[in-house]
């Protein structure tokens, strides 16, 4: 797989190559070249199968990582193509023209992470959520626990004790 990257290195700014296991390698590509690069892998290098598109929120770096997992059914090898995009007004070029199911992934990413894919069919339609008014829930800054505490109520009849604190209370309250 290194061989493919070595060959394409001149044409595309590919970074962070890592052979994760026998048949999976990780690479990072610039946002602007990513769709071009993925198209090339699909059309010329036999990476015909798209397994997933997903995102990772690197809140502390103020970036989203988009991961495209593509697979070559002949050589059985896969790449995770990673693209770092800005978290503010997050936007990425759509690849729905390459794979039909990409539109669904992109629609989900829009809903769950708030990453826009202009031109992707139905990208603005709610996918899983209905009537959602909070920030996109898969962002790291959405606090699920807090949300559920505010939205639901706890069951009656439950009390909490922390062993160490309880022992202090019982055995040495004044120290």
């Amino acid at each position: 797989m290194k061989e493919i990257i070595d060959r394409l290195q001149e044409l595309y700014p590919i970074g962070d190559f890592k052979q994760q296991n026998k048949s999976l390698a990780l690479i990072t590509v610039d946002k602007d070249k990513a769709v071009d690069f993925i198209t090339r892998l699909k059309n010329e290098e036999g990476f015909l199968h798209l397994s997933i598109i997903t995102a990772v929120d690197w809140l502390e770096k103020n970036k989203f990582q988009l991961s495209y997992l593509i697979n070559n059914p002949t050589t059985k090898n896969s790449f995770v193509v990673r693209v770092m995009i800005d978290r503010e007004n997050a936007e990425m070029f759509s690849i729905h023209h390459l794979w039909e199911q990409a539109a669904t992934y992109q629609r989900e990413l829009k809903e769950m992470f708030g990453i826009d894919f202009p031109g992707s069919p139905g990208v603005d339609k709610p996918f899983i959520l209905e009537g959602w008014h909070e920030i996109p829930p898969y962002r790291r800054d959405f606090d699920t626990k807090n949300y559920s505490e505010e939205t639901y109520f706890p069951r009656e009849g439950r009390t909490k004790n922390v062993p160490a604190e309880y022992m202090k209370q019982k055995l040495y309250p004044d120290e």
Binding site: V162, P163, A164, E165, M167, L171, Y172
Partner: peptide
């Protein structure tokens, strides 16, 4: 296991 039993 961070139980804190030992502290007392």
């Amino acid at each position: 296991v961070e139980c804190g039993i030992c502290t007392a």
